[in-house]
Design a binder for these strands. Sequence first.
DNA 1: CTGAAAGCGCTAACAA
DNA 2: TTGTTAGCGCTTTCAG
Lengths: 346, 346
Amino acid sequence: MPDRGEGGGRREPTMRDVAALAKVSVKTVSRVVNDLPGAGTEVADRVRAAARTLGYRPDLTASSLRRADRRSATIGVLFEDLSNPFDAALLRAVEDRARQGGVLVLAGSSEDDHTLQRELLLSLAARRVDGVVVMAAGGHQDALQAERERGTPMVLVDRPPTFGGTDCVTTTNRDSSRDAVTRLAALGHRDIAFLGDRRTLWTSQERYTGYLEGLARTGLTLREELVHADLHGADLAETATAALLGLGRPPTALFTAQNLITVGAMRVLRAHGLQHRVALIGFDDFPLADMLDPGVTVVRQDVPGLGRKAAELVFARIDGDTSPPVHAVVPAALVPRGSGEIAPPA
Amino acid sequence: MPDRGEGGGRREPTMRDVAALAKVSVKTVSRVVNDLPGAGTEVADRVRAAARTLGYRPDLTASSLRRADRRSATIGVLFEDLSNPFDAALLRAVEDRARQGGVLVLAGSSEDDHTLQRELLLSLAARRVDGVVVMAAGGHQDALQAERERGTPMVLVDRPPTFGGTDCVTTTNRDSSRDAVTRLAALGHRDIAFLGDRRTLWTSQERYTGYLEGLARTGLTLREELVHADLHGADLAETATAALLGLGRPPTALFTAQNLITVGAMRVLRAHGLQHRVALIGFDDFPLADMLDPGVTVVRQDVPGLGRKAAELVFARIDGDTSPPVHAVVPAALVPRGSGEIAPPA
DNA sequence: CTGAAAGCGCTAACAA
DNA sequence: TTGTTAGCGCTTTCAG
């Protein structure tokens, strides 16, 4: 690499350069490049040749600036943490759908933090994305609402909006939780603990409500000391599980309402040698859940389904769909693997 | 949402609108918005007020089009599969570093496919990204080389370029593999199998070479029938493992050179009830590897470290660093958890 | 300290 | 079928 190393002076060739070389007007080049009608077969070839020799590549940002629709062919995706398997799978599903339309994805992690989410949203807006798919941070959604009210096509995923006029896609949090608890009760469990994530998260609330419904349906009484909420991260989940096991009348079954919590609880059960004696059902599947001993029974969300649906909705809105906002619900399914099928001690 | 639903007619306010309202020139608005010197305190306040009342937001694409540096404050990331935990963690690390500079990330999955990788690269180029971080698809790298030679700042991660003049960041594939095999040999294993990913991948080749070095160092002879390559996906890994176990003289230890392969092999060992009798060391850590029985001994890459380094390099190049290209190597570490510490049968 | 004119690369709207 | 003029929203250059 002698001389022309680090991209020093070279300038990207423009339509003008191509036009000059092909001895036509810029507009003609534009026509050929976008294969629009009015393309003289002869001239078109000349233009294409010129473009090739110069290494011309269209500038989408410039074209989008001038075009009538002003589309950037780019959408924004704002999830909590792109390194979380759930978020990653969701991103992938959205990306796949986007690619079909030649759309690229600007991705960011909001860390479940308002301020950060707002800043990222502004960053996306500054780049004039055509729409956004968002996992709303817990608490208020002022920034999301403001953005939406400016007209930005928006789909919330995993958690619904607290404001109107916006599409969203969620799973059957409440019903699946209720079914899980009902299932444990049917095995004879009467002391079923609940371990949940931050209360500010809608999904946590729903899953807790489902837990209560499950108890109510099966005639069980709520024991407050069996409920632990605000367990963000595996560490807190472990502490809570240990506390539960230390009770005078410990639970014989656990319902863990998020995948990191499930893992934390499982870890503690194993440490106490109780993994085959205390039943466990978790919300959210996770890799290798089937390889543990016992296999971990979980409520599995249809993550690709969620992502696909969210993408479809946002692209429909971008394409001008003005039908009333929808709340799509993608069903989750219980996957029995052993841990949820443990009966209580006689 | 009565009337102003779907963002129907409203136009984003521009600098001109702000200028008109504040009764100043567009240039003055530009100065205030970018807080450049020459901002009259009085006038600045008027401008800011006008901007707020109109809900003005700068258009980065327009500004970047005109500005001298032509930066889009956006980089591209092209990995194999964004839903793979390794890729996801890498993306997150790059994203974190990018955010510090107000840079956003356009992310895509290349599926380890040349054509797709080339198309995505062109898509990124059309949006005039400032640089790219790429996990090169196996085989030739023509598209990457072409892009690089146009001057696009580029860093390859996980796999090095087959062409010159380009930075890259990889891990200690060969050395760590050699150490893993050496470790198994030290326990007394003489029949150590190798299960590897696609041969076209540089990492596969390196890890295989490390395996050979390990054998050579410890005076073991290579048994060809213990080597299985081109195992892409867990299914192929399972078939290969089953085949190995069916040999007249089966291996007493396995070295699995990629995380999906490790999981597949582990699955088959369990199915045969051999997980405590056949030793196993895998390359790449994976979630819950410590919770399996036995815990899975792995070579763990420093994924955040790889991502951080890659991001640092690409931003340095974007900022004009013209020092010679570097190949940064981030060390991996062996994490003993049990499966790699199983001795051969007496 | 402020502004007018020009133009980034491209496309819309109209001619020729 | 082709070209000309204007201008997307912003920054540059240069003049007040």
